[in-house]
């Protein structure tokens, strides 16, 4: 499979008081196109930091993070915005929907930034909402949605632009078990149909059981990198 993300000797330090806190230490990882992988570890293990670097929301202090052939450290603000706009979708723990927009408009937003024509935009948005089963809620505002519905909108918003990579930071943290499973099923289906690379940051067992690969992080280091198909057998067994 084609390599889509390459993390080499990445170190990330944050200034704390007079010193530094090392969030990531000597990380070396590769992700291939179409992977359904997760960064797993306790709070403070560095999984969100690594996800942010992959999504070009942050840069490594040392080492290099190559995402779709682009070195994150060397991108300008414009180039990094372009990378996120066209190639990376985000799903956040708190959904992060834009409160003043309807479901439809939230999903449409990413396409507006790509200057896609109205007709094509509408088709893509309705298709994305169909994937997550929310076409009937397209005119609702986020404050009228349940947690599960909000996260499905976030998935639709992330997937509508057909990104090569989709980064999901604790996507099930605010969901009950049923909604967590539902959202994971939706994402697994999208992964299989669209061949999008999914990388999760999680410590939720409900999420982990869907993953094909789990990278265990602890104190900013990779503790273990395991392929899960062997462990769970069939995808999505639960």
């Amino acid at each position: 499979m084609e390599e889509i993300i390459s993390i080499k000797n990445v170190v990330k330090r944050f200034p704390v008081g007079d010193g530094f806190f090392t969030a990531l230490q000597d990380i070396n990882l590769e992700f291939k196109k179409g992977e359904f992988a997760g960064l797993v570890g306790p709070s403070g293990s560095g999984k969100t930091t690594l996800l942010n670097i992959i999504g070009s929301l942050d840069t490594p202090t040392e080492g290099e993070a190559i995402v779709i052939g682009k070195d994150i450290s060397k991108l300008s603000h414009q180039q990094s915005a372009d990378l996120r706009n066209h190639n990376v979708g985000f799903i956040f723990q708190e959904y992060h929907l834009l409160p003043v927009y309807t479901v439809y408009e939230n999903v449409e937003f990413a396409l507006l930034l790509q200057n896609i024509g109205a007709a094509e935009r509408k088709k893509a948005v309705m298709e994305a909402l169909d994937w997550v089963g929310l076409t009937h809620k397209k005119d609702s505002k986020p404050d009228k949605l349940s947690g599960g519905e909000s996260q499905r909108v976030a998935v639709a918003r992330a997937i509508v632009k057909r990104p090569a990579i989709l980064l999901a930071d604790e996507p099930s943290a605010n969901l009950d078990a049923e909604n967590a499973h539902n959202i994971m099923k939706v994402m697994k289906k999208l992964n299989e149909e669209l061949d999008t690379t999914f990388i999760f940051s999680t410590h939720d067992e409900k999420v982990m059981q869907y993953l094909d690969r789990i990278v265990h992080l602890k104190d900013g280091r990779i503790e273990k990198d395991e392929m899960m198909k062997a462990k769970y057998g069939v995808h999505g067994a639960h």
């Binding site: 999504g55 929301l57 603000h77 414009q78 915005a81 372009d82 996120r84 706009n85 066209h86 985000f90 708190e94 992060h96 929907l97 834009l98 409160p99 937003f109 990413a110 930034l113 790509q114 918003r157």
Partner: peptide, 16 residues
């Protein structure tokens, strides 16, 4: 601030 973060995460440049 969160909204600003979302705009940037969705691909808007900071100056935009």
């Amino acid at each position: 601030q969160k909204e600003i973060g979302i705009y940037i995460a969705l691909g808007m440049t900071r100056w935009r």
